[in-house]
Design a protein around this nucleic acid. Structure first.
Lengths: 160, 160
DNA sequence: AACATCTCTTAACCTAGATTAATGCGCTGC
DNA sequence: GCAGCGCATTAATCTAGGTTAAGAGATGTT
């Protein structure tokens, strides 16, 4: 349960590792992502100040995710076991977020998912490159570009 | 925390409801699903004997999911609060499942997702209509048909 | 039996998004 | 400065999967 400062770009955890921790972000920005067998990156989540990030697996399973810093960040590192038994409330909340994401991936278009992303994380979108938003949404950067220009055409709320 | 018997087709919970419970399946088969604004159904999960099913939201949030019985089933019904504080281990396991599903939706083809489904739930696939597998995979029944005939062409493991 | 109602499959066509490629930035480092 | 690189955008083409439609079995109901 120690404090840790990391520089932008620092990799905190790699896929396949067993000693996976939980990172509480005090300042900065982390992300977790998977790399598929074609080498393509898929961002699983972002964690700005106040968020907690880690793979969501039991402590004995090897991690499926990479975690790295998108900005210089200050973190609290915790063992999984400690956090685990503590507050089920947060776990359930997290389940809800994932659930929503699954349903959205099955039912919404790239445009709809983008709109929702902007609404949910209005500030984060300013802090990361477009291609990472695309990766989070599950589309290519090119497709996101198209979506955005389509959005310009009939602007509902700008967020430029 | 009472026992309950339901007939095939019985709806246990609807989207928007607040009094959502957790259902432990003793025998039979339940499913949870969302309906998008086009009226299309998206199966979120199946729960055969031994599984637990519910929406994955805090007790104060209205449910996003419908839950109904695909077979005559016997259940134990629990309030969320009770189960909640009890075993975080199961919650984390569930998070892992959802996480895998999200990554798969972003990175795998319908064929790959189907293969994985068959491998993960070899028995369930015999008990439900194809269109529900399609709905779970996030594709149309027609697309699943195509995928299956493609699979026949180069059989790796049959599962007919 | 006869009818309606599902389910599955096949086929023709159509779109959202992937792929590939080219261009034009704004960085950083020499 | 300028070379190099990552990033964003646009455009042309391709493809997985969606849509629509039709037919063949099943299953169920009167």
């Amino acid at each position: 349960m120690k404090r840790l400062r990391v520089k932008k770009g620092h990799i905190l955890q790699s896929s396949g590792e067993l000693n996976s921790k939980i990172y509480h972000v005090k300042s900065g920005l982390l992300r977790s992502y998977a790399i598929d067998r074609k080498g393509k990156e898929h961002i699983f989540m972002f964690a700005p100040e106040g968020w907690v990030i880690g793979d969501n697996l039991p402590p004995d399973k090897p991690s499926m995710l990479f975690i790295d810093a998108l900005e210089d960040s200050t973190l609290i590192v915790a063992e999984k076991n400690i956090e685990k038994e503590k507050n089920a409330k947060k776990l359930i909340k997290r389940l809800g977020v994932l659930q929503k994401r699954i349903i959205q991936l099955m039912s919404s278009s790239a445009l709809e998912r983008y709109e929702d992303f902007i609404a949910t994380y209005p500030d984060i979108s300013q802090r990361i490159p477009q291609r990472m938003i695309a990766s989070y949404l599950g589309v290519t950067p090119e497709a996101l570009s198209k979506v955005k220009s389509k959005r310009m055409a009939k602007p509902k709320g700008d967020n430029s």
